[in-house]
Design a binder for these strands. Structure first.
Length: 364
DNA sequence: AAGTCGGGGAG
DNA sequence: CTCCCAGACTT
């Protein structure tokens, strides 16, 4: 890495001034209460601003305070996270809320180190809460900041490498100003999100253009250096057979254990192959067709998911076999599925089921 | 240091 | 199709 092209305080001033002038009017910028900053920062992890906004607005109607959140059932919390992905974030928020309610009087601590003791709050989020909500001089580095600073300072190493990450945090630790740390941190991220784009950065609109090494050397297209990611088509295919059965107006659902993939969510009971379904559920099944009623495919971060849905009739009393994936079964009214935590894949399947049933009713 | 954990919008 | 997003946690 090259020597800094200008003083850190000059650089920070440029960022803060530009941020004050051009910042977007986002919901979480109306109110800097620590609880609200916390929830927004968790929702924004690996998630785009546009995707978060409706979830953020809905959240505080149902969970207006840390205490309300601590006292809510996990199903309710996951229902309000349905479709956002990375569901451990919601589980960790719930666990943290109970911890905050019990031991911190419902208040988030101001100290970054103390914040990091809460599940789901890592180095980035602790810095964000501490600086934005409490005005503490704490740095933060996210994907936007890493890209921006790798260009400004011409960091040549892979920005995911331990060495580059260490450099980035050291840089930010030095740069973050005592006077307006929250605005500086948000300003860096805002620049990364709107100006210092991955491709075709808008250097003409950047307050750091005069001091940016990559721009000076016409290398914004080469930086940051990043390892190639795995192509979707190279991800292993996970095929599952799911059971769709309705009895007395209720659909049979399975509750996943609260960890791992889709932890704590509800879905159609599914197994690696169709013959295993009856054993999992202790039911006598007769399938309605030789072909699945529908097939849903979806790409996840590390695999491709393909779920075949098999309509069937069932006899017997459900009893969940010992399972590494499920903790419970439940017959549930199809119309009330919005009150449970379900993934986007399940949401699509349930919607498809509802539409097919509506068509069948019209034809009768 | 590498793997796991979702989902969707942009191009 | 591929790319990447206001990361954290486990192994």
């Amino acid at each position: 890495m090259s020597k800094s092209p200008t003083s850190y305080s000059d650089l920070a001033d440029r960022v803060v001034r530009h941020y004050k002038k051009t910042k977007r009017d986002l919901p979480w910028r109306k109110n800097r209460a620590a609880y609200k900053v916390w929830i927004s920062e968790i929702m924004l992890q690996q998630t785009r601003v546009a995707a978060v906004i409706p979830y953020y607005e809905r959240w505080f109607n149902r969970f207006p305070t840390v205490e309300a959140l601590a006292n809510a059932p996990l199903d309710d919390v996951l229902a309000h996270w349905s479709g956002l992905g990375y569901y451990s974030r919601a589980r960790n928020i719930h666990t943290s809320a109970k911890e905050l309610h019990q031991h911190y009087g419902g208040q988030l601590p101001q100290d970054a180190k103390e914040l990091r003791s809460l599940p789901g709050i890592g180095r980035y989020t602790a810095g964000a809460i501490s600086s934005i909500a409490y005005g503490k001089r704490e740095p933060l580095v996210d994907g936007n900041v890493a890209r921006l600073l790798s260009r400004v300072f011409e960091i040549e190493e892979d920005i995911k490498s331990t060495s580059a990450i260490k450099q980035l945090w050291e840089l930010c630790t030095k740069m973050v100003p005592a006077g307006s740390p929250g605005e500086f941190n948000q300003g860096l991220m805002e620049l990364g999100a709107l100006v210092c784009l991955p491709k075709n950065p808008k250097c003409g609109h950047c307050p750091l253009e005069p001091v940016c090494l990559a721009h000076a050397h016409d290398r914004t297209g080469e930086l940051p250096v990043q390892a190639k990611r795995k192509k979707d088509s190279d991800k292993p295919l996970l095929e599952r057979d799911a059971l769709f059965v309705i009895r007395r107006g209720k659909i049979l659902l399975a509750h996943r254990v609260p960890k791992g993939l889709f932890g704590g969510l509800w879905e159609l009971p599914q197994t690696p192959s169709r013959p295993e379904l009856a054993g999992l559920l202790s039911l006598s099944l007769s399938f309605h067709g030789k072909k699945p009623g529908m097939v849903h495919s979806q790409v996840l971060s590390h695999r491709r998911l393909c779920i075949r849905v098999w309509p069937a009739s069932a006899e017997g009393r459900t009893k969940l076999a010992a399972s590494t994936s499920y903790q419970a079964l439940k017959w549930y009214p199809l119309s009330q599925l919005t009150t449970l935590g379900i993934s986007s894949a399940s949401k699509a399947i349930f919607q498809n089921i509802a539409e097919l049933r509506a068509i069948n009713r019209e034809q009768q």
